[in-house]
Design a protein around this nucleic acid. Sequence first.
DNA 1: TCAATAGTTTAGAATTATTATAATGTAGAT
DNA 2: ATCTACATTATAATAATTCTAAACTATTGA
Lengths: 142, 142
Amino acid sequence: MSKNCNFIEKLREVGLRPTKQRVKMCEVLYNREKTFHFTINDLVKLLSEKMNEKISLATVYNTVHAFEKKGYLKEISIDSHKSYFDTNTSAHHHFFDEDTHELIDCDESDIEKINIRKNITGKKINSVEVLVRVASDNQTHK
Amino acid sequence: MSKNCNFIEKLREVGLRPTKQRVKMCEVLYNREKTFHFTINDLVKLLSEKMNEKISLATVYNTVHAFEKKGYLKEISIDSHKSYFDTNTSAHHHFFDEDTHELIDCDESDIEKINIRKNITGKKINSVEVLVRVASDNQTHK
DNA sequence: TCAATAGTTTAGAATTATTATAATGTAGAT
DNA sequence: ATCTACATTATAATAATTCTAAACTATTGA
């Protein structure tokens, strides 16, 4: 709240015009204690229900992708046919709660450094991501 | 070729009726040297073009999911809005070639055992999957 | 062997996530 | 204040997947 000029500056820094919609989205995404994991749908809901901002769906998609391209957001690969995004753009791993479909960040210290022994000729490694799927202890897994 | 009775038996073993379509799909998927990674689209194409089998799209979906539920196939999480499947159902990791969108299996020996130091109360770990994204060495990454 | 039935296949409609389009609006430079 | 390039918007289009309901078939057991 009142950090808006920060967002305006930050947007400008990476070459994104600080439009009303983008600033509002920044507020929703980054005025938080913890990193935030969401789907486009989650975000649209938050914007309209909590913030009373009806930003067009196309704009939300455009803006999320603009943010991703500029390193403001990171896309996370969970199964299914839905994209998850993460406001924590540093290299880190995740837990995925299969009961609640919730993503949880891993600190670097939670998982030892991963050593890749295989090499693919002519290719370089862009990223190494670990996904740990968890579920209720008492529940049978499919 | 001629392994069909094997497939019929195997299907029966896990409680799937060995229909003509399912047996054909088994042939395409499992009469191979190496494990096979595919999308539904790939599979439909293979069936119709190489095998001259026009199995309805809905059946391919149903059958792939039936196979997955019974442990004949494993779903792999890559980004995007497409599901990838793997005929190698054992716990293993993957390389994903971002240039060709190809999946490559990792042997167990390619990646050291991963130690998860974090615990989520009341939850048990179902799987730990590593995805290593690679791309052409000379190509700038997005 | 044959009918009953429970599970399967199918074409097509419906749904869901996402992207494209083209008209209108707005930020930033002059 | 005006221009221009970039943004936003509603809506249409596309793509992947699931649903539906009718027709079909493998299995069971009389």
